[in-house]
Amino acid sequence: MTHTANDYYVPHGSHWPIVAAIAMFMTVIGAALWFNGELNGRMVLFIGLGLIAFMMFGWFGTVIHENLQGMYNDQVDRSFRQGMMWFIFSEVMFFAAFFGALFYARVLSVPWLLGMDSGFTTHDVLWQGFNEAWPTNGPGDVGGEFEPMEAWGIPALNTLLLLSSGVTITLSHWALKVGDRGRCVLWLAATVLLGMTFLGFQAYEYIHAYTGMDLTLASGIYGSTFFMLTGFHGMHVTIGTVMLIVITLRAAKGHFTADNHFAFEGVAWYWHFVDVVWLGLFIFVYVL
């Protein structure tokens, strides 16, 4: 049997997956204990999260090392690419559940509570005085009076920021493809900066909502959908920014070549995905 560099690389055993499984186990046990009011759970949670970070350094480090050694052929590269695409598809479906909840509440459950369509008995028997259309915290006024979030301030600015970050990462990709490492790193750094500015604004918006507008996670269905959608999105922007920082450093170290830079493209796709989700959020959560 002869081997060529074209063989599909199959790694021999790895201890990282079991570290990952234990780390995830600890993380969720810690979180569950914390939810149940056991404050010691936080310790377990943070150890779990620390282990996850450690695992990622180790696991991804191994993969990067193998890649730099030239152990991966085009077919392995394709596996990574397809894997990343399907992962992003699963993320799309995760957001779809929350968008679905938003649409259901706005198109069906709130109008039914108002007595429309087939909801008239519910309205007459249970919630007679209820007459608040969207944005609402429901007939029980859950969470108390609040002020809904305005679209044309910070959120509009954030839209601009994220859209431009989509442009800068593409410029960086173009630079990488012609082998201009300096410009590649520069545009990547600009993307990181835009991402961080977005997160800063978002944090400011949250603080303002909680302190100045009485808008909280507990403000009925409006607060629930607003914070869960923007919150999960913000979490993804944070993860995306960390990923961007990693590839910026890797690009600066010269890890990427014009025709071998899966990590760069994976992160770029992820970033565009986060971008598109934001557009959905901006339209359906803020504007409409």
Binding site: F35, A105, S109, L113, G138, P139, G143, T216, L217, G220
Partner: peptide, 23 residues
Amino acid sequence: MLLTDKFAGTSFFNAAGGGDPVM
């Protein structure tokens, strides 16, 4: 959503808050 309804005060499945258990 079940988790946050129980622990974080969200109203996804609470009609009083504008949500719906049927959702």
